[in-house]
Design a protein around this nucleic acid. Structure first.
Length: 367
DNA sequence: TAGCCGTGGGT
DNA sequence: TACCCAAGGCT
């Protein structure tokens, strides 16, 4: 690893901030330094691209212009606004923190990173980003961009997925932060990491800090950052049931409050590919796995819908979902976590997985 | 402390 | 197709 002297640090800061002043991105959350805006954007941007976030960010603020209004929202409404962004605990934690700030702290934010980290959903990165951008605290905001940028500039060969990485990079970056512009410094690093020093096909030669880029100078940019490979997602098979009542409504079921897609709504999912199963088998499995009791005499038809089904890949699971329609002669009662609603209902928070299943059903259902 | 937790886009 | 990547946090 390379260590810079004070004069080099000073020149680096000037090169970075001069470039940022002239070429920094004009993004919706950079219009001011309101901690609500900074915090909301940083949470949305976790593991999520800028172009994906912008429309969600604008819609969110139109819905809840202030943190006090967010604090008064229902969790159902918050999840619905978030639906499609993924990592849904981020949305639940946004609501929790909004309520802590509004109801327990009189609308006052903690102004340093340690205080911010106490809030739900705020870890080292978001704490550093909000503390530096909204409150001008001289702390780093170490995200994937910072890992990539400083591993190249300083030839840091610590595996960025290792438990040691956070401290190594924190110690390396902290002395480089200018006391007068910590927020701009951190945001400049993000812009650098998404442009000249991006992960794929970087343009190190034209970077404003090319003169400070040791990996570029030595022709080893493609070796940084050092990052251990991750595991393949585990394959799982499910069958989604379209339980169709005579009035055209189907059964929607809310998932458990913890785990994958927590609290979101899908059609009843049976484990395994049950395309060839009989009506009694499907009814039995539906009772065993979901507590939905159907009288076999109510089943008019059992029809597989489409062929191979839908593939949906999560970070750690790969789902193959086949679809079966059970046409019923009546509208039987449901447990508390399930509801009869039309195929086209717009009121529930649906994960992308269910949106794919619904679209697949509409393409393949019997005429 | 690894494993869990989404999604869309690019190659 | 099967990867990888994108402003991580929680347990």
């Amino acid at each position: 690893m390379i260590h810079w002297d004070d004069a080099t640090i000073d020149r680096f800061q000037r090169a970075l901030l001069t470039w940022y002043d002239a070429h920094g991105r004009d993004l919706p959350w950079r219009r001011d330094h309101d901690p609500y805006h900074v915090w909301l954007s940083e949470v949305m941007l976790q593991q999520t691209g800028v172009s994906t976030v912008i429309p969600y960010y604008e819609k969110w603020l139109a819905h809840w212009p202030t943190i006090a209004e967010l604090a008064a929202a229902d969790e159902d409404a918050v999840l619905k606004e978030w639906a499609g962004l993924g990592y849904y605990s981020r949305a639940r934690n946004l609501l929790k923190t909004a309520r802590v700030i509004t109801n327990e702290r009189g609308g006052q934010w903690p102004q340093d990173a340690a205080g911010l980290k106490q809030l739900p959903g705020i870890g080292d990165y978001v704490a550093g980003a909000v503390a530096s951008i909204a409150f001008s605290q001289p702390v780093p905001a170490i995200d994937g961009n910072a890992y990539r940028v400083f591993s190249r500039l300083l030839l840091i060969d610590t595996d960025i997925r290792s438990s040691a990485a956070k401290k190594v990079f924190n110690d390396a970056i902290t002395p480089l932060i200018p006391a007068d512009r910590p927020g701009d410094f951190n945001q400049a690093v993000m812009d650098l990491g998404s442009s000249y020093m991006r992960a794929k096909d970087p343009d190190s030669a034209h970077s404003p800090v090319a003169a400070f880029d040791a990996a570029y100078q030595q022709g080893v940019t493609d070796q940084y950052p050092v990052k251990a490979p991750k595991k393949k997602p585990v394959a799982k098979a499910y069958t989604a049931l379209a339980l169709l009542a005579p009035d055209g409504q189907v059964v929607w079921q809310q998932r458990p409050p913890r785990g994958l897609l927590a609290d979101l709504w899908t059609w009843p999912l049976l484990t395994g590919d049950q395309q060839g199963a009989s009506a009694p088998e499907l009814i039995q499995q539906l009772a065993d796995e979901h507590g939905i009791i159907l009288d076999p005499a109510l089943v008019l038809r059992v029809q597989p819908v489409g062929g191979n089904g839908v593939v949906h890949v999560f970070t750690h699971q790969r789902w193959t979902i086949t679809v079966v329609q059970l046409t019923l002669a009546d509208v039987p009662p449901l447990p508390a976590n399930a509801r009869w609603l039309p195929l086209t209902q717009q009121e529930l928070a649906l994960p992308t997985m269910q949106r794919k299943v619904s679209a697949y059903y509409n393409r393949n259902k019997a005429e």
